[in-house]
Structures are given as structure tokens and as C-alpha cells.
Nucleic acid binder design. Structure first.
Length: 619
DNA sequence: TTAGGGTTAG
């Protein structure tokens, strides 16, 4: 009767099958047993056995074992090298992979594909594409593997030109309708901003799978069509595809964009049922969605009560950003310090979130300290947005000249936002002269920026320079600059009710009007005095009060108060910043109606309770 | 032995 060993040697596929099983079971022990059997059976000199073992060791993450075996092989073929090369790439050791690649005397298509894929996977897209040209020059034609990788590289670089050339290759080689090549093509187009072309490529594929669906959903979110992404999510489910972790990441982020809490909660439940809650990306998306929908508590619960999730930089950054967005600077800082203790290496987004947190709370010294830490300890190059936080902190503290000098001396080109940040500080400190100078800088970059004209006029109004105010208004009329309308919205039972300033189109408009009038009178009894200084028009006081009373957030809030039971917290969203008067009014309402009111404006959240706001009037 | 899709800021 043949022994187990005889069987093993005669049936080479048995050896490779057991090895494959050892990889699937993550059993290094079984792989090592097979290794000893190979040595004692005198099979070490045959490439077949060693190659399979090197592969198994690499997949089990023990690269030193793989390399030792490779090193001792008396004969190696291209496949031996390829396996080692692939092993290094799978384990994130790109440098070692490049070394193996450079050493190889003979290379085949798989060698080239492996190294190109590795480079692109680790975001050295340019080098990956350069090697592709070299591969081509060496006489190797691109196959489906090559195209999948180089299209990913083009997508990473948002390089439509080279992406289209790769599309040409795909058509010529008949791979255009291959599921993987097609998905990569669609992704390349959509990452480069060509949503329609990407969608067409997906539509034309003869069969679809979850990845093709995800490509389309992600493309829609990335190109500013969150509603389309949600539609596509429903279509995908109706077609019988089961959403996976990546589907959830994209589709939850589209709920963040839309600020639709109800929809987001529904998808959260679906993610739980699908068993996707141990994936860091899904948790990051949920944290961001809940915090952007005004539910910091839910965001914190999802973050702190996660189970079986690997610690992840993006996830911690999402939670730091959530605290910052809600004005909880101290918690953001503490979380950052805990993150450092975990050994996670902060990136530029982490620092941006941290600096925003400081700037939203006026934590000036801490902000400056973190800016320094980013630069000197972490060696990260701050971008305009990081500098903007510093300008905000200096400007609000009244150090206007210092903030201006900071902009002039920074190594990156100033943008409209950084100048506008300084302009806002000018308004707070009523420095109309500097405001004029700064506004000129802004209008050089964008002459149609309505918010800057309004800020300048507001600054002049606060300095009581009425002639200058009317001059700005005249310029706006001449240049046909339209003020961006204020819009606020409130979600009730998954339905969004939106209100523009002065809007009378809502079906309950008349009732809202009456309710607001009564409410305002009530507030006046409690000491509220309308702050007509924020109204720019040349009107009399009564007209100004009327205009003030119809700001979009007041209309939305009145509607919400009328349509929700007593004691229920109200969440209002607004596209612009909340004005001073509305901020005061909402504080009074939180007392008079005994309600918790959460308002998200263009930059942050305000939590109003018992006459106080979480921003402590610093926004 | 080699291939495609995602998340954090504004």
C-alpha cells in the first residue's frame, strides 16, 4: 500500500492543496510540517515544491521564512522570483520588492504586472506608469492585469489623458468589456470628474458584480450626486446584489453630504445586519455622518463602542473632527493625545481637524502649539487650510497685523478663504481700513465673491461708515454681484422642509408668520432687542426688524417648534453663517420654549440650551 | 506568481 509520502510526491497537486489549506487556516505549523517533509523527502532541489512553499510563507506573513527558502534554492526560475516579489508587495515591503525586481535577469508579463501593481498600490502612481512604458518597450503587451493596475494609477493621478490612452489599449485588445478592466475604466473617468463617461462604461458591461455597483455609487458621491448614489444603492439591492463594506462606506458618506439623519440611521441598521460593523471605514463614515447630522452623542457612541475594529488613523481623525465641529475643542485635543499613545501617526487631515477644533473654540495657544508640532515633530508641510486656522486664531484674538503678516510670509499661495477669514476678523474688531485692503486682495482673485462684499459692508456698518456701505452696495449692483440667499432646512419624518430668507412659499407660511410674530413679542418681554445693525439696507427701524424676523433659520425654527412635541431637540441646518441677531434669538427661544436647539451653519454646530450656546458666542 | 471599488477636513 502506498504511504502518505508516496502519495504526496506522486500527486503534486495534493501538496499544493494542503499548502493552500494551511494558508486559508492561517496555520504556519502545517506549512512548516510540509517544509520538513519536503526536506526529508529530498525534494528541496525541485522548483515546484519550493515555489509553492515560498508563496505560502509570504501569504502567512513570514517573509523571512520565504526569503531564506528562496535564498537556498539551487535553481530558481522566473516564477520563484515572481512569487517572492508578490510576497513582499502583499506584505507592504515595496522597497524589497523593487530590489528583487531589479535583480531579476529574466522577467515575464507577471513580473512586470506585479511590480507595476505594487507601485500603484502604494501610491507611487508616476513610477508605476513609467514602468508600464518600459514594460511596453521591452515587448510585453498589456493584458487585463496590466490595464487594471495602470487605470488605477491614472485614477489616482486624475490623469484623463493617459487614462484615455489606456482605454484605447483596452479597446484594441478586446478587454473593454472585461468586468475588472471596465470597472477600473469607469473609476478612472469618474475620479477625473467625468461622471457620464464612467456611468456609460458601467452600463455597457455585459455583466455586473458588487465592485461594478460600488464603482458607480462611489463615483456619484465623489462627483457631488449623493441622491444619485442613494438611488443606485436601492437599484443594486433590487438587482439582487448584497451590499458589502465598501458599499456602506460610500452610501453612508452620501447621507453625510445630504445631512439626512433618517436615511443614515436606516443604512446604519442595514450595515449592522450585513455584519459590516467591524470595518474601520464603515465606522469612520458613520461617525462623520452622525456628527454632520448634529448627533455628536451618536457619533461618540459608535466610536467608543466599536468592537473588533482595528485601530485606524482615519477613524480617530473622523472623531477628532466631530468634536471640533461641535465646538468641543478640549475633547478633540484629549483624543489626539490618546491617539498618539496608541502609536497612530497623525497626517495632514488629522492636524487640520485638530486646528479647526482649536479655532472653533478660540484655543489660540494650543492651536499655535499644534501647528508647530505638525511642522517640526511630524515633518508635515502645512497647506493653505492649516494656515487659515492660524489666521483665524490670531485674527479673532485681535492680532490683525500679525495675521496679515503671517499670510504674506507663508510658503503657500493664499486663497480666497484665508483672506476672508482675516476679513471676518476685521469685522469683529471693526477695522474698516484693513477690511477694505483685504477685500481688494479677495476681489483680485474672485471679483464675484458676494460674501466678501457683504462682509466689507458689514464691517463698515459696524464702524458706522454708512457712505462707504452704500458705495459697496453700488459696486455690487454695477458688477451684478448677487448676495447668496440664506437657506435653512429641517428634517421631519425623512422629509426635508427648506426655507429661504423671506420665503413665503411653504404651505404653512401664514401660520409660521403668525407664530413668529407672537414669539418675537414674547422674547421682547424677556429682554430681547432686535439687532438691526446686521441689516444692510437703508430702511427704517421697523422695516429692518421685519427683514431680520424673516431670516431663513428663524422660519425653519418656527416651523420646527410648531411641528414637534414639547421637549424634543430640534436640528436646523443652514448654508451660511448664523447672524448675530439669530444667535441671540435662538438663545432666548431655548429658555422661553425650554428646548435644546442644534443649528449647523456653514462652518460648525451650535448647541443652544437654557439660554447658552456651546460656541460661547465665539464663531 | 500578477488586476478593479471606500472612509477623515471644507
Amino acid at each position: 500500500m502506498a504511504s502518505f509520502f508516496d502519495l504526496l510526491w506522486s500527486e503534486s497537486s495534493l501538496f499544493s492543496r494542503i499548502l493552500k489549506a494551511s494558508v486559508q487556516c492561517r496555520s504556519l505549523f502545517v506549512a512548516q510540517q510540509l517544509h520538513s517533509i519536503m526536506i526529508t523527502g529530498g525534494r528541496s532541489r525541485f522548483k515546484f515544491w519550493s515555489n509553492h512553499l515560498i508563496n505560502a510563507y509570504a501569504k502567512l506573513g513570514v517573509l523571512n521564512f520565504a526569503f531564506n527558502l528562496f535564498d537556498r534554492m539551487p535553481q530558481r526560475n522566473v516564477m520563484s522570483y515572481n512569487i517572492l516579489l508578490g510576497g513582499y508587495i502583499q506584505n507592504g515591503e515595496l522597497g524589497a520588492a523593487v530590489e528583487v525586481f531589479n535583480e531579476m535577469g529574466e522577467r515575464n508579463s507577471a513580473t512586470w504586472n506585479a511590480i507595476i501593481t505594487g507601485l500603484i498600490k502604494f501610491e507611487d502612481n508616476e513610477e508605476g506608469l513609467r514602468l508600464f512604458l518600459k514594460m511596453h518597450a521591452c515587448g510585453f503587451l498589456p493584458d487585463a492585469y496590466t490595464l487594471g493596475s495602470i487605470l488605477r494609477g491614472c485614477a489616482g493621478l486624475k490623469d484623463l489623458n493617459r487614462g484615455k490612452q489606456a482605454h484605447g489599449y483596452a479597446i484594441r485588445s478586446g478587454l473593454e468589456f472585461d468586468l475588472i478592466v471596465g470597472s477600473s475604466l469607469a473609476n478612472m473617468y469618474m475620479r477625473s470628474g467625468c461622471l457620464r463617461e464612467g456611468g456609460n462604461v458601467i452600463q455597457l458591461l455585459p455583466v455586473h458584480n458588487v465592485v461594478a455597483c460600488n464603482t458607480l455609487i462611489a463615483g456619484l458621491v465623489q462627483n457631488g450626486c449623493p441622491v444619485g448614489a442613494l438611488d443606485q444603492y436601492n437599484i443594486m439591492k433590487m438587482a439582487g446584489f448584497r451590499p458589502d463594506k465598501i458599499t456602506f462606506v460610500s452610501v453612508i458618506s452620501s447621507c453625510s453630504e445630504l445631512v439626512t439623519l433618517g436615511q443614515g440611521q436606516k443604512i446604519h441598521a442595514e450595515a449592522i445586519k450585513a455584519g459590516a460593523m467591524s470595518v474601520a471605514g464603515v465606522i469612520s463614515s458613520l461617525v462623520s455622518m452622525y456628527s454632520r447630522c448634529g448627533c455628536l452623542d451618536y457619533a461618540a457612541t459608535v466610536f467608543w463602542e466599536k468592537e473588533g475594529v482595528q485601530e485606524d488613523l482615519v477613524l480617530w481623525t473622523a472623531m477628532i473632527a466631530a468634536y471640533g465641529l461641535h465646538g468641543r475643542g478640549q475633547e478633540a485635543i484629549e483624543l489626539f493625545e490618546r491617539m498618539e499613545l496608541q502609536g497612530l501617526q497623525a497626517n495632514d487631515v488629522t492636524f487640520l481637524s485638530l486646528l479647526y477644533s482649536c479655532s472653533h473654540c478660540g484655543l489660540r495657544d494650543k492651536g499655535l502649539e499644534f501647528f508647530d508640532l505638525m511642522l517640526h515633530k511630524y515633518g508635515l508641510q502645512p497647506q493653505v487650510k492649516h494656515h487659515t486656522c492660524i489666521v483665524d486664531l490670531l485674527g479673532r484674538a485681535g492680532r490683525l497685523e500679525e495675521a496679515e503678516a503671517f499670510i504674506q510670509s507663508m510658503p503657500v499661495k493664499p486663497d480666497v478663504v484665508i483672506w476672508k477669514t482675516l476679513l471676518s476678523a476685521c469685522k469683529i474688531h471693526k477695522n474698516a481700513d484693513m477690511a477694505e485692503r483685504i477685500c481688494e486682495e479677495i476681489l483680485k482673485i474672485d471679483p464675484q465673491d458676494s460674501a466678501s462684499y457683504v462682509l466689507l459692508a458689514n464691517t463698515q456698518a459696524s464702524a458706522k461708515r454708512w457712505l462707504d456701505v452704500s458705495e459697496v452696495r453700488k459696486t455690487m449692483r454695477e458688477r451684478m454681484v448677487k448676495k447668496e440667499p440664506g437657506i435653512s432646512w429641517f428634517e421631519k419624518k425623512n422629509q426635508v422642509h427648506s426655507f429661504a430668507t423671506g420665503d413665503q412659499s411653504h404651505p404653512q407660511s401664514e401660520e409660521i408668520e403668525l407664530y413668529l410674530k407672537k414669539l418675537t413679542d414674547e422674547l421682547k418681554l424677556h429682554g430681547y432687542v432686535p439687532d438691526t445693525g446686521v441689516v444692510l439696507q437703508d430702511m427704517d427701524t421697523e422695516e429692518k426688524e421685519f427683514s431680520l424676523a424673516h431670516h431663513s433659520e428663524k422660519l425653519a425654527l418656527a416651523y420646527a417648534l410648531m411641528n414637534t412635541p414639547d421637549g424634543v431637540a430640534i436640528r436646523i441646518m443652514k448654508n451660511l453663517r448664523v447672524c448675530d441677531d439669530c444667535h441671540v434669538v435662538i438663545k432666548y427661544i431655548s429658555i422661553v420654549r425650554n428646548r435644546e436647539i442644534i443649528v449647523r451653519d456653514a462652518t460648525r454646530f451650535h448647541h443652544f440650551k437654557n439660554g447658552h450656546c456651546s460656541c460661547r458666542d465665539y464663531w
